[in-house]
Design a protein around this nucleic acid. Structure first.
Length: 423
RNA sequence: GGAGAGAUGGCAGAGCGGUUGAAUGCACCGGUCUUGAAAACCGGCGUACCGAGAGGUAUCGGGGGUUCGAAUCCCUCUCUCUCCGCCA
């Protein structure tokens, strides 16, 4: 959620920024400021009436103490009108308040100045490409065929047990999952992230805290009986650890990591995009989350990018980094870098990581703040990224490291897998 | 699942219809004293919103109600604890 203060003070800059998302928010913001104006006036009026009532109540209390019953009772009659007025104003102020919140929820984050304007993925900017496309001297096979050939993943069996998008990993396939999780967690730990194992279901307040609610309600699995949501990413429980927290000083840098399964309904997906491991309802991911002083979030983002680069390089994967354009940047993000790995067999780039800074967009909702040196409270910045999500990494590893003899396991992974080839 | 108890400031813990944003202790910050520190003493010390400011309003788990007035009474929701049952 954008800070109301910011919209008041920098209306033009906010509008300009949102244009990069291909959004014209002029009407919403004009309306918002109108409501805000009226809200402030009504609120001042309401508080005046409340102050008057409080004053009278105090006087009546004093009169009773002095035994002046009649005067006290006389004073009571004065309150009827004021109470009526207070109640009306209260209803009005609450209504305006709700209307403002509603409008604020509609506005996405203002993109960082580096974010290019644009509509969709075609307008993203490639900022770095490392490695080059592998040349195969045999016909490259897509990962779903390799998974079947080496009996690593059984998609049909997953359909039997649960449904499409819930694969069953077997044997070396299962072990590869475990190895990747362990590898990612240890790399994160080396980079200074503390590991957490959070709950996989969260309450409504947490959903609102990181911005999955109210807009993306349909993307989460919902447990009606207990009013809980299955997490779509570890970002939700990890970031919400710091909901309603005021850090005691400005000297902080919080780095968290966690492995969790992630659950996404992916309503509306179909066709070749969902083939094999490309898009699943349940998948494994190691997430990194940071809570930073505003002055450090740029550096933090760079560090996270370097971390993810390191992972991909250790896995021997050819990748590129994209700075997403306004239109392709997520609702809550101020700037997002996507990492993509090239799949020769599928002849396309697969998104394997997304690293974002949210500035104060999440912390506004989370009420996540810190105390400045002069005792003021100020909003923190939040950032997060996948480091990494498993399915497309597995797809990339299988496809890019395939040989006629089998799939070669990257050196860095061998101590976790215990085998160096899948055949 | 059944029965009971409870939810107060960073923590502990009073208050149980009247001027209480809230006693007291601890923690924390500033000061006096000291070569320095400790102790002692003095002062300060939640959050949010409105306001240029003075100040005002809200907040004692959430929501609603009774009352001139609610942390205190009533309703409701959520959560926690204890005992019983079940169980990895």
């Amino acid at each position: 959620m954008l800070e109301l203060q910011r919209i008041r003070n920098e209306k033009e800059a906010v509008l300009e920024g949102l244009k990069k998302r291909n959004i014209d928010a002029a009407a919403t913001i004009t309306k918002l400021l109108e409501v805000d104006q009226e809200w402030r006036l009504s609120k001042a009026e309401l508080e005046g009436v409340s102050a008057e009532l409080n004053q009278i109540a105090k006087e009546i209390g004093d009169l009773f103490k002095q035994g002046k019953q009649e005067e006290a009772n006389a004073a009571k009659s004065k309150t009827a009108d004021l109470k009526e007025k207070e109640s009306t104003l209260k209803t009005k102020v609450d209504g305006l308040d709700a209307e403002m919140t509603q409008l604020l929820y509609q506005l996405p984050n203002v993109p960082n100045e580096l974010v290019p304007a644009g509509k969709n993925e075609l307008d993203n900017i490639t900022v770095l490409e490392v490695g080059s496309k592998r040349i195969y001297d045999f016909e490259a096979v897509p990962h779903w065929d390799l998974a079947k050939k080496y009996d690593l993943i059984d998609f049909e069996l997953g359909v039997k047990i649960t449904g499409a998008g819930f694969p069953i990993y077997k044997g070396k396939g299962a072990k590869l999952q475990r190895a990747l999780i362990a590898f990612f967690l240890e790399e994160a730990e080396k980079a200074g992230y503390e590991e957490f194992i959070p709950p996989l279901v969260v309450n409504e307040a947490s959903g609102y805290g990181t911005g999955q609610l109210p807009d993306k309600e349909g993307q989460m699995y919902y447990v009606n009986e207990d009013d809980l949501y299955l997490i779509p990413t570890a970002e939700v429980p990890l970031t919400n650890i710091y909901r309603d927290v005021i850090l005691p000083s400005e000297d902080f840098s919080i780095k968290m990591t966690g492995y969790t399964p992630c659950f996404r309904r992916e309503a509306g997906s179909y066709g070749k995009d969902v083939r094999g491991l490309n898009r699943l309802h349940q998948f494994d991911k190691v997430e990194i989350v940071r809570i930073e002083h505003p002055s450090n979030s740029e550096k933090a983002l760079e560090e996270m990018i370097d971390h993810v680069k390191g992972l991909l390089e250790k896995l021997g994967l050819h990748y590129r980094i994209l700075r997403l354009c306004g239109g392709d940047t997520g609702f809550a993000s101020a700037m997002t870098y996507d990492f993509e790995v090239y799949s020769a067999a599928q002849e396309k780039w697969l998104e394997v990581s997304s690293v974002s800074r949210f500035d104060t967009f999440q912390s506004t909702r989370l009420k996540l703040r810190f105390k400045t040196a002069d005792k003021k409270t100020q909003l923190c910045h939040t950032l997060n990224g996948s480091a990494l999500a498993l399915p497309r990494i597995v797809a990339s590893l299988l496809e890019n490291h395939q040989t006629p003899e089998g799939v070669i396991v990257p050196e860095a992974l061998r101590k976790y897998t215990g085998f160096d080839i899948i055949n």
